[in-house]
Write a protein that binds this DNA or RNA. Structure first.
Length: 845
DNA sequence: AACTGCCTAA
């Protein structure tokens, strides 16, 4: 009988059904299959003696077992067993029970070896089945303490199985053996039952160092672990390298780090400085605290290093957000030059370093290497590659990487959802169709995508899904939802989610405060900030949001902004880019230009936002000269202005009437900086031309705006028409305006005023009538006054003809007085004769 | 034979 294609298929099926990818079999030439016959095997291979030949023969025999097991006899097997554990490894690949039955007299040693092989090959439950088989056969003489220890290891933290074995341990008296107890403790630690592990430990009569180490490694909190280490020391337990390694792995928190130092000196004292594991733990400890130079010193002083040492150093550098990017690269290059066998940890570290320093070219080279060493289908490596490509803004390549990953996990899908915002929903559904469950990060990415795309209904659906799948209890997910609803202008929902949180961290407060600020609810934003300071420690984002609110609010006293400022100084937060930007923006918007300048001068890192904030502050103030000099200085310092910077410069030109300069700035923006003008740019240009009296040019420019003129453009042009008394154009503009926004009183009022100035009283009456006929009411304009009372939250608001204030009479008298003083000052400056008794040195001479 | 180290996504 010839073995042909059919059998190869059968062989493949057999492997697949066992979940095996036998790399050694893949290289078996198909010729071997087609030429092998099924003549009595013992006859053909029985005389093989060298282990290599035997293994080769065994390869074929494995195939044949699956093809025609009935033809198999015991003779070659017994011969093969002579070649020891290497062959036993092959048993584990196929039909191990079948083969196992052929072992004439299984001993505890052979069973243990088989179980260990199965564990190495990641088949823990088959190892367990082997143990179970001995159990059922009642051949307990083949079970020793090692067998029990191995079977406990095979449980992989499955509490149910482990407890059963614990029962067996107690009933068979194995609990007196410290090895078995140690394995039991490990099993309980892995299954998250640390208390039970402690119970086993406390019942031990003679715990050895492994017992202590096992318990030490089971602690969750660093503090508890280290105090246990202290008690070990006090109990006279002599630390071994494993103790140090375990204890050091807990020393990366703020409090624990000190302990790490002390442990390091103990390590040196005990002479364990050359232990690879200990050195690796030290490298990790230092790099987790960001002390890469000290980690490097440990690394350099190590006499022996293994792959993990190099990987620890590499990923330590890679994690530091690009500050040590070049160091990470040089470590990796060194590893490659030394011809080290790289694993997925090395490759992920190298790729993530490329992502942090945004070095696309190097990333691509390492990607090439990854393909060469065959890791392109590896999930972790693929995930980091995707993230690196997305950081380097080559999204297409990220997608290609994703498609090559053999078994994409939740992380892969989450990365895709975060990168491809517009496809986020369909990606999410596709992920679920593969039976993968989203985690909290997936939801954060999805909610963020929905927020950006403004998908209200889908947002509510995802909110429902979060409730259903119990993800609302995740702080981070709830925070995303708060932000989402705030963006949708559903502050009620935002607040409700916030209030239902069982614990509110700073981020949650920030989300709510910035939500209020963005929706124009400045008082709520400020009040929320006040409550936040009582509960949590505000950070730069908290202050950024509340300062934005105070900047935009007309009726919150600037004193509160100043209080925030001093608080920031006290906390040492005032120089961060977010806070300093918000501070100088606030002072600029609220009219305190000198304070703005001080904040700007004290800002160590002048970002585009800082420059823009100070320039727009001066522009709002009408200080054309300062705006232009700052704008030039900004260019000299190598900062490129953004769209808002240009807007502020244009506003300054507009106020000063510098039409030609404004034109040049506009062209400079479009041609040199390739910035697409936004409606506000056009509106400022139209305003600028209009104020200068170039009304026709203004109207012409207005019609060039892509998408047609908006409200603000028309309003500013109308203002210019009134200024220059152009009734015809004003009428055109007003008609346009009323069409766009029928409810607004602005155009009516302006038009009526223009007619009045021209003495066209019938027209005035007509406009007033039209206004009443359409049910339009004039909105009341308010002015705000800050009366020096620190406790008062808000300012006093006044409108024209308003007598509601209890002190309105005094206020009006004072206003009149101030008005008179101002008039006098103005007259004297312009060289007119002073009528009343305010002295002016210039006039007196 | 039991205890230990490096790992990515927001």
């Amino acid at each position: 009988m010839k073995l042909g294609v059919v059998y190869r298929d059968k062989y493949t099926r057999c492997c697949v059904s066992h979940g095996i990818l036998p790399s050694s079999f893949q290289t078996l030439p198909s010729r071997a299959l087609t030429t092998t016959t099924s003549k009595p095997l013992s006859h053909r291979w029985g005389r093989l003696h060298g282990s290599n030949d035997a293994i080769k023969a065994y390869h074929k025999s494995c195939l044949l077992i699956s093809l025609c097991p009935t033809r198999w006899d015991r003779v070659p097997l017994q011969r093969l067993f002579k070649f020891g554990s290497k062959l036993l490894l092959f048993h584990t690949l196929q039909h191990e029970h079948h083969l196992f039955d052929h072992i004439p007299h299984p001993t505890a040693a052979s069973i243990n070896r088989s179980m260990l092989n199965l564990l190495h090959k990641h088949h823990p439950f088959r190892a367990l089945a082997m143990f179970k088989g001995q159990f059922q056969l009642c051949s307990l003489d083949t079970v020793n303490e090692v067998t029990v220890a191995l079977s406990l290891k095979a449980c992989q933290g499955e509490l149910k199985l482990g407890s059963q074995i614990h029962g067996f341990v107690v009933s068979s008296g194995f609990d007196s053996c410290v090895t078995v107890s140690n394995s039991l403790m490990k099993m309980y630690c892995k299954s998250g039952n640390f208390e039970k592990a402690l119970l086993v430990f406390e019942n031990l009569i003679n715990p050895d160092i492994v017992s202590w180490n096992t318990i030490l490694s089971g602690f969750e909190k660093g503090v508890d672990a280290l105090s246990f280490a202290c008690s070990m020391h006090l109990n006279g337990v002599v630390f071994d390298p494993v103790t140090f390694t375990t204890a050091l792995s807990f020393c990366w928190g703020d409090h624990e780090f000190f302990f790490g130092w002390q442990l390091q000196s103990l390590v040196l004292k005990y002479g364990f400085g050359c232990e690879v594991f200990v050195g690796n733990a030290l490298i990790t400890m230092y790099s987790r605290r960001g002390r890469l130079d000290e980690a490097r010193r440990v690394f350099d002083e190590m006499t022996r290093r293994d792959l993990v040492s190099w990987n620890a150093m590499l990923s330590g550098y890679a994690q530091e957000q690009g500050h040590y990017g070049s160091e990470a690269v040089s470590i990796f290059v060194n590893m490659v030059r030394r011809g080290m066998l790289l694993d997925h940890v090395s490759l992920t570290g190298a790729v993530s370093a490329c992502g942090h320093i945004k070095n696309l070219e190097l990333g691509r080279q390492i990607h090439g290497l990854i393909i060469k060493v065959g890791y392109e289908t590896h999930v972790s490596v693929g995930n980091v590659l995707m993230s690196t490509y997305s950081k380097c803004e080559v999204l297409k390549d990220a997608k290609v990487v994703f498609q090559l990953i053999s078994n994409p996990n939740v992380v892969s899908w989450t990365t895709m959802i975060s990168i491809f915002v517009e496809d986020a929903l369909s990606l999410f559904n596709e992920m679920r169709s593969y039976g993968l469950y989203p985690n909290d990060v997936t939801f954060i990415g999805l909610i963020h995508a929905i927020t950006i795309s403004n998908l209200v209904t889908e947002g509510q659906q995802v909110h429902g899904l979060c409730i259903k799948s119990c993800f609302l209890s995740e702080q981070t997910v709830s925070n995303s939802l708060i932000t989402m609803y705030a963006r949708f202008e559903f502050m009620q929902e935002s607040k409700q989610i916030f209030e239902e949180l069982n614990y509110r961290e700073t981020v949650s407060w920030n989300a709510l405060i910035s939500g209020y600020a963005q929706n124009g609810l400045y008082k709520e934003a400020f009040l929320t900030f006040l409550s936040a300071t009582k509960e949590i420690k505000p950070n730069q984002y908290t202050f950024g949001s509340v300062l934005n609110a105070i900047a935009a609010a007309e009726d919150i006293s600037l004193k509160h902004g100043q209080c925030c400022h001093s608080d920031l100084l006290k906390r040492g937060l005032s120089t961060g880019p977010i806070v300093s930007g918000a501070l100088l923006d606030m002072y600029g918007k609220r009219g305190n230009i000198s304070e703005s300048r001080i904040v700007f001068n004290e800002t160590p890192e002048r970002t585009v936002f800082a420059w823009t904030a100070i320039i727009s502050a001066y522009a709002r103030h009408g200080d054309y000269e300062s705006v232009m000099s700052l704008f030039k200085e900004m260019g000299r310092e190598g900062n490129s202005p953004d769209s808002i910077t240009f807007l502020s410069v244009l506003v300054a030109c507009c106020r000063k009437g510098m039409v030609d300069v404004g034109h040049r700035v506009f062209d400079f923006m479009v041609k040199e900086h390739s910035i697409e003008p936004i409606p506000e740019h056009y509106s400022t240009m139209v305003d600028m031309l209009g104020r200068a009296g170039r009304l026709e040019e203004a109207e012409e420019l207005m019609h060039q705006i892509p998408g047609g003129p908006g409200l603000s453009v028309l309003q500013s042009l109308l203002g210019s028409c009134r200024l220059h008394g152009n009734v015809d154009m004003a009428e055109r503009v007003v008609n346009n305006l009323i069409e766009m926004d029928p409810a607004s009183s602005g155009p009516y009022v302006l038009m009526a005023n223009l007619y009045a100035e021209k003495g066209m009283w019938e027209k005035v009456a007509e406009v007033r009538k039209g206004m009443r006929g359409r049910g339009v009411k004039k909105e009341v304009g308010f002015s705000w006054v800050d009366v020096g009372n620190v406790d008062s939250l808000y300012l006093h608001g006044f409108s024209s003809g308003d007598k509601s204030h209890p002190e309105s009479e005094d206020i009006c008298r004072m206003a009149e007085f101030i008005g008179l003083q101002m008039k006098l000052l103005k007259d004297s400056r312009e060289g007119r004769k002073v009528v009343l008794g305010v002295t002016n040195p210039n006039i007196n001479e």
